[in-house]
Amino acid sequence: MRYAKITPYMFIMPMLLGLILFRFGPIVASFLISFTDWRGTRPPVFVGLGNYLEMFNSDVFWLVLLNTFNFTLLYVPGVMVLGLGLALLVNQKLKGIAVFRGIYYLPAITSMVAVALVWNWIFTARFGVLNHVLRTYLGVSNPPNWLSNPDTALLVLVIVSIWKSAGLPMMIYLAGLKGIPAYLYEAARIDGANGWQQFRHITLPMLTPVSFFVLIITLFDAFSTFEVTFAMTRGGPLNASTTLPFYIYNNAFNFFRYGFSSALAYVLMVIVMILTYINFRMRSRWVVQDAY
């Protein structure tokens, strides 16, 4: 009885301590570091808002930020549409459909390095499959250097990322589709609704809670994209495909600018927080609250 009040806390203490030491600690520390010039070879020098001012006065930062938004604007809808499309495809009652589900989910669990190698062979300029098709079958005499052209490098990363990431949303949408009561479709058919009308007025609205969830996780995914950039373009040419997470990594672990990269990380965090807040505020406008 005497220890009843603290006993539950003792049970969660290890987790709580871990959280405080290894999560909240670094979060607070990196916030403080963001106000310093620190490279680890000498004590940090307090620079006030210097890192933030340098960032906002840097052309590279604005380019990287633009790249991050462009990536997100293409990636998030791309993953959601492809995920939903695949879910609709694998929601058929066909023999061996589980195999198809497995195949479509395979990219999600494949190593990004392996994926990048394969896509490199598709997009590479001289011997790439894509340019071979463009040259040989479509008569394009001078097809683009996809990976090293500033106008196309980011687009390539978006395409590869969408292809690789659509598997998880597919599974989530599939679960959502399975949860839509069959009687809604039966009633719609009796009322004469065609397939598109059923999809537009039953499937889509009933999936809005799932879509909201997919939107949030895909948004986080977009703002933390790293592997595909690292494996395919290293952010090049000249930062044309660099997004914020990769820029943070470069500044921290290649240029050893811990203060500047911490400041970048906080800007990224604020952007993600604002977007998440907006999404939650907008939720009531398009998510059917009692869909099930």
Binding site: N145, G236, P237, N250, N254, F255
Partner: peptide, 22 residues
Amino acid sequence: WGEWRGYVDGAGLQGQLDEVFN
């Protein structure tokens, strides 16, 4: 040096020269 030469990220002098060569 690694930062301005573009040793790791392919930017800096390396990236600029590549743009010249391209």
